[in-house]
Design a protein around this nucleic acid. Structure first.
Lengths: 233, 233
DNA sequence: GAGTGGTCTAGACCACTGG
DNA sequence: CAGTGGTCTAGACCACTCG
């Protein structure tokens, strides 16, 4: 029998993927060019192009003009995780969402925060601490600094009932950001708010977001013990 | 003056992005359809399509047939991080890489590992513990279980000088996997190997990889105190 | 210089789904 | 049902880069 024609880019992708997994095309090996594959599969070159580009995006192929397409040596798989609004994350778990404002003030940030935000010394910013809970159990502490440029005094009032997390997402657009994951031991501040023991291991996310090079906000999210992020590769 | 024509999908993407960031198109708002945008930008519809699909992939647009394209309410930004071989991660930091095999045996895994790997009870698997170090300082403990199907007895010998992390990447192709990030307190095992205090907060990565539904390996990476993952959104 | 991937175009048909 | 995005095609030109 002759090969069925592959008529869409997903099926071309699947076929190429299976040749990689079966080691018919081994890591580092040059695969046929787009025109040849198009002829073999009985489709247009652009269809093959779409499939191969998709696989290259996923890190399974290395492509270069003139050099051709090769199977990646070390399939650099990338884990991608979405960054949801905390309220939605809690609701998605099937829990009731709760929010408490701990403190809210305008003040001069400590040096490491000022540096992180690229502020000149002695610039006032807004500092907010709050607690998100799931079914009345502490879930995560939000410790946030916001540049004054992006929030009016009126907005400050809102934070009594609406978390800055949520307010910022819907009111201030951002263009870029850094994010870091780490682990810390609970100090008195965290232990008190999260209701855990001093020294407990806590998962932490630090995030800084900017709008065209100007820092909007930097936040540290300190999760209750046992928190984990799950994703797929 | 009249608008310049936007001739490639990247410039269309940029223009659309700037309209989102400038709030000319607000979250939740319906934007013009592809045909209209193509006319406005002076390019083919497929060029607009490519740009909008790319933005939708990044979570900035929601697109549905017939319903049209809307600016995403909560720009679900995704953090993507590549998963390097540990040796390369350490070398990339400019440190000298060191490797020590702690233990290597064939045994019946504890129930939670068997469940994770989808094994029947009492199936023997390979269990390996080893330590990766940077400039002779402990960096991460690798605690790994490997299904016997994928590794011969000869291979076992290799692990004295080559980490299973590295060996697997280059010898066993995988098709899918789960990954999880969390924080734990150092127990005696971890504290001893990493040279840290009992109870120290440690960053942990759990990863399970499969080849066509069959589990290859599951590993827990326990990093020395202070470790953090940095990435960009 | 020449071979490869990257992209654009115009036109077409289809799949999905809202009203 | 009709409007929208999803995709395919054939052909074309270009950008890059290896040899």
């Amino acid at each position: 029998m002759t090969r069925d024609t592959l008529q869409n880019w997903q099926s071309v992708r699947k076929e190429v993927l299976s040749r990689i997994h079966s080691r018919q095309w081994k890591p580092g090996e040059l695969i046929p060019n787009e025109a040849d594959l198009a002829q073999e599969f009985g489709c247009a070159r652009s269809t093959v192009n779409r499939a191969l580009q998709n696989l290259a995006d996923d890190g399974l192929l290395d492509r270069r003009r003139k050099a051709g397409t090769r199977v990646a040596m070390h399939p650099v798989r990338k884990a991608t995780m979405s960054i949801p609004v905390i309220r939605n994350e809690i609701i998605a778990r099937g829990s009731a969402y709760g929010y408490d404002l701990i403190s809210s003030e305008r003040s001069t940030p400590p040096p490491h925060v000022a540096a992180l935000m690229g502020l000149e010394p002695r610039t006032d910013v807004i500092h907010i601490a709050c607690l998100h809970s799931a079914d009345d159990t502490p879930y995560v502490v939000e410790d946030r600094w916001i540049s004054s440029d992006w929030v009016s005094s009126d907005d400050m009032v809102n934070f009594a009932h609406l978390s800055p997390n949520e307010w910022l997402v819907t009111h201030v657009p951002f263009t870029a950001g850094d994010i870091a994951f780490s682990a810390i031991s609970a100090g008195a501040f965290e232990a008190g708010l999260l209701g855990c023991e001093l020294g407990a291991a806590l998962f932490v996310i630090d995030r800084t977001t900017r709008n065209n090079e100007r820092t909007i906000t930097t936040v540290r999210l300190i999760f209750a013990p046992g928190y984990r992020i799950d994703t797929v590769i």
